[in-house]
Structures are given as C-alpha cells and as structure tokens.
Computed example of a mutant assay.
Amino acid sequence: MLVFPNAKINIGLNITEKRPDGYHNIESCFYPVGWKDALEITLDEAFSFQSDGIEIPGNDADNLCTKAYHMIAADHDLPPVKMHLLKGIPIGAGLGGGTSDAAFAIKGLNQLFDLKISFEKQLEYARRLGSDCAFFIRNEPAFCYEKGDVFEPINLELKGKWIVLVNPGIHISTVEAYSGVVPKRSEEDLRNVLKQPIETWKNNVKNDFEATLFVKYPLLEKVKTALYQQGAEYAAMSGSGSTLFGIFDKETDLRRQYSDFNVWQGLLN
C-alpha cells in the first residue's frame, strides 16, 4: 500500500479566544495543496517505522504514523506492518505535514485490511492525533473552527490558480507561535470575506500569527512582500509558519529567486 499525504495551507487564520483546556479557538480556511510525502505500508514480521528524506525529530515510537497504527490495532486485529515514510513536506512549517501523514496512515490501514472503519470513526481517530489531522480524512477545502478540528464545507474555488510555497527553513513550534498572540474576535466572518474577489483579500484576509512572527523573523515578511512584487494576487504565511505562499493567476516559476529555500509550486485543484 502506497499513499501520498499532501500538505495544506491556511487562507486566513483568526485566533479568537483561549479555551479553558489551554488550547485556542481559531477560524481558518484549510485548502489542500500538492506538496506531498510518500508513505508505504507493507506486511512484516513485526511492526516497524522508518523514514527517509527530511529528518524527523524525536523517536520513531512517537511518530504520528506509529501512533495511528497502534491506536487502530487496539480496536482491530491488525497484523504487524512496516511503515516507510519518505518525508518531503517541511516540518514546523505550517503545512500540516505530520498530521497529514497520520491521517493517510489511518485511511491506508483501513483500505489495506478492509477494516470498514466508518468516515466518522476515522475522524474520531484523527482528532486524537492532532487538531488539524481530521481535515486530511476528507481532504477538501473546509472552514475550520474551535480547536481547528471541526469543519464545514466552504465554497471556495481556486482550481487552476498557480501557487508557490516558499519555506526558508525556520522551524517554528506551535508553542512559540501562540506565545505572542492576543486572541480576539474577528470583526467580519472569514467565510464572507473569502466570497469576495481574491484581489480584495490582501487587506482583509489575515493570519494573526504574522504580527509577532514577522517581528521576530523579518525574513518571513520580506518573502511575503516579494511574492506580491512578483505578481501574487494573494500572499500570506500558512498556519503558524514558517512557510509563505503566493497565489497567482498564471504559471509562475520562482525557484531561481528562492534557490536557497525549499520551494514547491504547482496548480491548485
């Protein structure tokens, strides 16, 4: 079984309040993009997990793919498998790469062993592993709220637009990102703002993390400004950073301009 977990971007991110459980409530639009990892799951004599590509910090036992396997194995009679992950999506980059891997592990195990796990149960498993993990079960554009783990469909059509993602290699932890944020209710419903032409988003669709992280890491703001100068209709930081993205009306190749960084570019679906 070979699956290809993809990244996502946040189009707008409002941090509305801190919850009693220590988490934050947010509002955002999650949109899938084509930057991908590769996860192979094969039968083996004993469970194992290994990875290549971008180095993943921590122990293999703590990897979300490993946790996904053992979580499902606790409810189903799973045989041992070998999981091999080729990591291409940058880590700590606001792209959801780790939680996407976990969600695709859930879906892959369900398909490989014909477990007939319902969609709702897959969502439940995913929510145990990370706030945005459940998004990748359906893997379609969605408006998210509460901890970022409750979703509703959003009619946002960007198919055919060209996107460039620029990751300068700055690792920003979730704790670091939230430490500088003062939650506040947004003045306008993000869903309504996103119904307006993309040319209007520049002044109205915000990522609340940018205010403090741009001060701490000026390079991030420089990249965002450059993306607009290079013709982006909309540019922003994704999630809690450090990836910046620009959405363009036509194919745009910026790999030479950002040759020192990790860049992915392609069409939106």
Rank of each mutant, 00 (worst) to 15 (best):
V3G: 10
V3F: 07
F4H: 15
I9V: 14
I11N: 07
G12P: 13
I15T: 14
E17M: 12
D21E: 12
D21K: 09
G22Q: 07
H24S: 08
G34Q: 12
K36A: 04
A38F: 05
A38L: 09
L39H: 06
E40I: 09
I41W: 00
I41H: 00
D44L: 06
F47K: 08
I54Y: 07
I56C: 12
A61I: 03
D62V: 03
K67C: 01
K67D: 01
A68N: 09
Y69A: 08
H70R: 13
M71E: 11
I72G: 02
A73T: 02
A73N: 12
H76M: 13
L78E: 14
L78V: 12
P79C: 08
P80F: 03
K82P: 05
K82D: 07
K82N: 14
H84V: 05
L85Y: 00
L85K: 00
G97D: 05
G98K: 03
T99Q: 13
S100Y: 03
D101L: 03
F104P: 03
I106H: 07
K107C: 14
L109T: 02
N110E: 02
Q111T: 11
L112R: 15
F113C: 09
K116P: 00
K121P: 10
K121M: 10
K121F: 06
Q122V: 02
L123Q: 14
E124S: 01
A126E: 12
A126L: 13
L129P: 14
G130L: 08
S131M: 08
F135A: 06
I137D: 02
R138N: 12
R138L: 11
N139F: 07
N139A: 11
E140R: 14
A142E: 11
D149P: 06
D149G: 04
V150C: 04
V150R: 08
E152C: 05
P153A: 04
I154V: 13
N155V: 09
L156A: 01
L156D: 01
L158S: 09
L158V: 07
K159C: 13
K161G: 03
W162G: 05
W162Q: 03
V166W: 01
V166S: 01
I172G: 10
T174E: 05
S179W: 01
L190G: 04
N192I: 04
N192R: 10
L194P: 07
Q196F: 00
Q196S: 15
Q196V: 02
N203D: 15
N204P: 04
N204D: 06
N204L: 14
N204S: 14
N204K: 13
D208K: 11
F214M: 08
V215S: 13
P218F: 01
L219I: 14
E221P: 13
E221R: 15
K222H: 10
V223K: 00
L227F: 05
Y228C: 00
Y228A: 00
S238D: 07
S240M: 07
S240I: 03
S242P: 04
L244T: 07
G246A: 10
I247L: 12
D249Q: 10
D249Y: 00
K250T: 15
E251F: 02
E251R: 09
E251H: 07
D253A: 05
L254N: 08
Q257R: 04
D260G: 00
L267W: 15
L268G: 08
L268S: 04
L268C: 10
